[in-house]
Nucleic acid binder design. Structure first.
Length: 265
DNA sequence: GCCCAGGAGCCCG
DNA sequence: CGGGCTCATGGG
């Protein structure tokens, strides 16, 4: 287990891309009548089309709302909330500004944490009134990121997702999947901080919007279906590089230290 | 019923 | 600065 060869971040990207291809994030809601809920992004693999093009302000706005709705939930659930908004033609600053907090919360219910997320969306709306999307586009990347981080309810992953996927600026989006994958293949310690992991990518992968866009999306793709919390190591094309191959059907816990706290809770 | 999902804020030592 | 808690729906 320990003598597996380490893979570089470049090589990891190449292998993910070779296996999964372009992910075309960010997935946008598509209200075309022939597209029913079971044909949308979350069901067809998250990426119905290539979204790597300059976005208009409506699309930027939708992505910003989507990043908040997607916090700590499945994209399927976040998309249901977006779908609810879209059906009432509410994915616009003007419309959302007229909506009161409780109405908004009910509409986005499927995304979970809906009371908190409604507040976060309103915080974002206030921010956008002072800082319209047209002006945000002109900001230097780190200034934009910091402005977003100052909004209550926008943490590092959400800010970076907006910078990258809404504004097409090159920044690497770290997340729970990235940490899980990298720690399993032995590239980082399990308790690495957000910034440490992000800096690792920034130091080894040249700043490029398309690459950062695809890289994060590819990691999500791989971790949802293969390197999941109960990983499918036998079908993983990375298992020759992995430090933590978990045999299928293993019912006993690998370590007993951590599970004790949980079961006694 | 339990576990998990593209986090963030807050509190506490 | 790190760890634990809270927020909550929906699918497996």
């Amino acid at each position: 287990m320990k003598n597996s060869a380490k893979i570089s971040l470049h090589s990891l990207y190449d292998k993910l891309y070779k296996n999964y291809g372009s992910q075309g994030w960010w997935p946008l809601v598509d209200l075309k009548p022939e597209i029913n809920p079971t044909q949308r992004g979350s069901y067809t693999g998250y990426h119905p089309g290539n979204n790597n093009y300059p976005k208009n302000e409506d699309q930027i706005f939708e992505i910003i709302i989507g990043t908040i709705l997607a916090q700590n939930t499945s994209w399927v659930n976040a998309e249901k909330a977006l779908w609810n908004l879209a059906q009432e033609n509410l994915i616009s600053e003007n419309k959302l500004n007229k909506l009161d907090l409780d109405e908004l919360a009910q509409i986005i219910r499927p995304s979970g944490f809906f009371n908190q997320k409604a507040i976060k969306i309103q915080n974002m709306l206030q921010f956008l009134q002072k800082n319209p999307i047209s002006s945000l586009k002109k900001l230097e990347i780190n200034v934009l990121r910091q402005n977003l981080l100052d909004i209550k309810g926008v943490g590092p992953e959400t800010a970076d997702s907006i910078v990258l996927y809404a504004f097409n600026k090159p920044i690497f989006v770290n997340d729970a999947y990235t940490k899980r994958l990298l720690s399993r293949i032995g590239l980082i310690p399990e308790k690495s901080t957000y910034d440490f992991i992000q800096n690792l990518f920034h130091s080894q992968i040249n700043a490029n919007f398309v690459v950062y866009n695809e890289y994060h999306a590819l990691i999500v793709q791989h971790c949802v279906y293969v390197c999941s919390s109960k990983p499918k190591c036998s079908m993983c094309f990375l298992n020759q590089y992995c430090q933590k191959i978990i045999p299928i059907k293993s019912k006993k816990k690998a370590k007993k230290s951590k599970s004790i706290n949980k079961t006694n809770k």
